[in-house]
């Protein structure tokens, strides 16, 4: 124990030093980057209008606060993402189960789906959904976006779930079998609970990807954060400020999600 603690302390000291160095490097790099951008913008005579940005977050009208266009766009992005997360997990789970099943047609179906999705560009898939499938089935823009993104991300989630399930030792399955559990109970009580902590980090990465990829629905004019940004720029020509702001909002969204999941992981890990 004491040896461990000493080693830990040494590691802490070293990591403390390297952290200071890393922070300094980071600050120098960022400062020069900012300088390049600001200097370059000034050279081309760009008029910075940061003071105009807050009204796109909120407006005060007759003493009441209303959300601005960027916040409305963020709302659509979050809405879209939440629907997608739900459907994506479901699609991924079903695909993974089919892929691991004994049914030959199930395995074929899921393999075809995976290969199809992963080997065509997301943008082309979106055009296909928007120009071909939604007119046929009468689906609106928002749901076209949800379906397309679900279709795309579901394939990655399927592989994450499959590798998570397969990383649970064979002996666990066998122990479940030996006490007479059905396949379904084996999944539910033994395999899935052990696979979830393994799947959580890559799943988080995938959901972060989903948030970022959701900006692609701006090409079919769903009023998400990116679309609102584009529209504001079309009205005001404040492209620098708006794109920085939009990127910043995405950053806050994704970083807070990964921080939440890190917290969650630390909580679930306590047991072992």
């Amino acid at each position: 124990m004491s040896v461990n603690r000493k080693a830990l302390f040494r590691y802490w000291k070293v990591s403390q030093q390297s952290r200071v160095v890393a922070t300094l490097q980071y600050l120098v790099f960022m400062a020069s980057l900012v300088w390049v951008v600001v200097h370059g913008a000034n050279q081309m005579g760009y008029q910075w209008q940061w003071y105009n940005i807050p009204e796109y977050f909120y407006k005060v009208f007759e003493g009441e606060i209303y959300p601005g266009r960027l916040i409305k766009g963020l709302g659509v992005t979050v809405d879209l993402t939440l629907w997608c997360v739900g459907f994506t997990l479901l699609t991924g789970l079903i695909t993974a189960l089919l892929r691991m099943s004994d049914s030959i047609s199930g395995r074929w179906l899921s393999t075809i789906y995976l290969e199809l999705v992963r080997n065509t560009p997301l943008l082309v898939q979106l055009y296909l959904f928007y120009f071909v499938f939604s007119p046929i089935f009468g689906i609106d823009r928002f749901w076209t976006g949800v379906i397309c993104l679900t279709f795309y991300e579901g394939s990655f989630v399927a592989e994450i779930i499959r590798s998570g399930v397969q990383s649970v030792e064979r002996g666990q399955w066998e122990a479940g079998d030996s006490i007479g559990l059905t396949r379904w109970d084996n999944y539910r009580y033994i395999v899935i609970p052990q696979a979830i902590p393994i799947m959580l980090p890559p799943l988080t990465g995938q959901i972060i990807n989903l948030i970022k990829h959701s900006s692609i629905v701006s090409v079919i004019a769903v009023a998400d954060l990116t679309t609102e940004g584009r529209n504001i720029i079309a009205d005001t020509f404040m492209s620098f400020e708006i794109w920085f702001t939009v990127a910043g909002i995405y950053l806050v969204l994704t970083l807070s999600l990964s921080m939440f999941v890190t917290w969650l992981e630390n909580r679930t890990r306590v047991r072992t």
């Binding site: 002996g171 666990q172 066998e174 609970p193 052990q194």
Partner: peptide, 9 residues
């Protein structure tokens, strides 16, 4: 089993 195979969770 040789490796016990208890459910660790």
């Amino acid at each position: 089993f040789q490796q016990f195979n208890l459910f660790p969770h």
